[in-house]
Write a protein that binds this DNA or RNA. Structure first.
Lengths: 139, 139
DNA sequence: CTCACTTGGTAAGATTCCCTGACCAAATAT
DNA sequence: ATATTTGGTCAGGGAATCTTACCAAGTGAG
């Protein structure tokens, strides 16, 4: 079985667990919204960069940001360095959601460490980090 | 960075490469169609099982099968063991597409082996196979 | 300074994907 | 026989995404 398919399976599992945990915590985010929110850094990001990072068009990113903005997860503030641009910033509610996500992610990581053994998991993580150089178009 | 996100990045990269290769070979499949087609085994599969395997509803699977059937990638034949059911079988065109996909997949695997070293890649693949036991809802 | 070009973003419209709920027909179990 | 399960379709709608086109602010060259 191709490693990429195995990665897909594991990654999908995590996404679903995270999404479920968010819902349980009262955050009714769609998958696409959650993926976007996950990529908004603490110090804000421009829509165009966000789109690039999430691998969607600017229009799609704008559409999704509109939604999570309306729901109170992010805010758009003027970019002080460029009058055309605005920065998408994580709001309080978004920060709380990110915290929920990180918590369940850590739990899953512990599960994986138990299942594989911590050193094997570390090997996998390291290898995947290396792999990123030839698989991540964003960097 | 969470291993699952790294997996997501790598898996997405492969999907896009495969999709591009398919397009180049004249197969104009959408992502969802390709994902489905990838799960149709040589000896056929029932729609319900296909849906389960691809993690979509029966309706979605039926919708997608309709499309790839119209485009000549699969055929629906009566299931000899159950008069209600039909088997989705890979057609000649579908087999050709699968071949294209497997070729590019092998190429990517070689790239990864070069980048990581063959033994590290094998460690990763083995670990991911083990991980499947706790991440694959289908098995 | 001004004119072309780039960059950040929005608008409109269509398509694709996928879901829920309801339903039917064949098979299986009691 | 009747009830339940299993395989599948139909109808309708919502979410995500794309393409094409556009506008407005910044940037660079002459």
């Amino acid at each position: 079985m191709h490693p990429a398919l195995l990665m897909f399976i594991a990654a999908r599992h995590v996404e679903q667990r995270v999404l479920a945990a968010l819902r349980e915590a009262g955050h009714d985010l769609t998958l696409a919204q959650a993926r976007l929110l996950a990529r908004v850094p603490e110090d804000g990001i421009r829509l165009t960069q966000l789109a690039e990072s999430a691998q969607v068009t600017k229009q799609t990113a704008g559409f999704l940001v509109d939604q999570v903005e309306k729901a109170g997860y992010v805010e758009r503030v003027p970019d002080p360095t460029d009058a055309r641009a605005r920065l998408v910033m994580v709001g309080p509610r978004g920060r709380q959601a990110q915290k929920v996500a990180r918590t369940i992610e850590r739990r899953i990581e512990r599960e994986w460490a138990e299942h594989l053994g911590p050193d094997r998991l570390r090997l996998v993580t390291d290898a995947l980090s290396d792999l990123r150089q030839i698989t991540d178009p964003f960097l």
